[in-house]
Design a protein around this nucleic acid. Sequence first.
DNA 1: TAGGCCATCTGGTCCT
DNA 2: AGGACCAGATGGCCTA
Length: 138
Amino acid sequence: MKSRRSSCTDSGSESSETDSKTPEKFETATKRRMAANARERKRMQGLNTAFDCLRKVVPQWGQDKKLSKYETLQMALSYIVALNRILTDTRRHAAPHHQWLDLQPENYSCLMRYEHPAGQEFLHSSFPYEFDGHHLHA
DNA sequence: TAGGCCATCTGGTCCT
DNA sequence: AGGACCAGATGGCCTA
């Protein structure tokens, strides 16, 4: 755990003046700030854990380089779109005796919760990578 | 050394 | 009132 700030740390030295008019108020404000900082650290750690989980299920460029957060989100998005297309194509060509393949959208819609700001149009954009089962190729 | 990425702090806003 | 969430600021680490 490294502290990135040298000038203002958990000491709460930047509490507002109104909160620190008396030593008691200063102390409570400091404690509140420290507690808030700790909560924020924990929240961000949870977020990073979620990113790590996502990295494990998303195709990687290679074993050596870890995807950045932004890249992870972009890759997950593209990957989901690609999987959705595979499912759609499979359903279209599946023979009747392959009913296990005939998934209904509600059965995998949990994978499609992401809504791109650009709207539904995004879902029809093409997956920009080739996936060989383990790695992606541009 | 510049730029990218990241962790942390902080104050504001919203929600319970 | 207090916690969750968010975005901006800051500064450290790493790589080309």
